[in-house]
């Protein structure tokens, strides 16, 4: 029987936009999901999805910070992410998700969306446990 930890947990993470630090975003997601009793397949999906979320927000930019917020309510994990550029580029939003990103997220998580937060792009995803009852 999978142990369920139902208390809502919120974790915030802020990382510089550097390729070698995306591991922190993935690890945080995996850890939160693991604590919630997610199976490894779900965790693997979540890892890939979080990476895709980050990738889709920063594109080719290598400046600024990514802010991530993980919320676990026991049966679902919501990851919100927003990008804070060091300097806004006029006319450039920087977070235009390509179609493939959307497809990948469609495939990996139960729900996701995009928007703006301050001057920067934001996005979120929600992954429910495979064995969770609807």
């Amino acid at each position: 029987m999978v142990e369920r930890k139902t208390a809502t947990v919120e974790v915030d993470l802020s990382i510089p936009v550097q390729a070698d630090l995306v591991v922190l975003a993935r690890l945080a997601a995996a850890t939160v999901a693991s604590r919630a009793g997610f199976g490894v397949e779900d965790i693997e999906d979540l890892r890939l999805a979080v990476e895709e979320l980050c990738l889709s927000l920063v594109g080719t930019r290598a400046d600024g910070r990514l802010h991530l917020s993980y919320e676990n309510d026991g049966d679902a994990i919501t990851v919100s992410c927003w990008y804070e550029a060091e300097a806004a580029v006029p006319g450039t939003w920087g977070g235009e998700a390509d179609d493939l990103s959307l497809r990948i997220l469609d495939a990996l998580v139960d729900d996701h969306g995009r928007g703006l937060r301050g001057d920067g792009p934001s996005a979120w995803l929600c992954k429910r446990r495979s064995d969770a009852t609807a």
Partner: peptide, 25 residues
């Protein structure tokens, strides 16, 4: 009949959950 959890993997391998997460990463 389902994907195991990290805790179950840790128990089965004798490793800590943290070590399992590290290895999976």
């Amino acid at each position: 009949g389902r994907s195991p959890t990290v805790g179950e993997l840790a128990t089965a391998t004798g490793a800590t959950e943290e070590a399992v997460l590290e290895a999976l990463e």
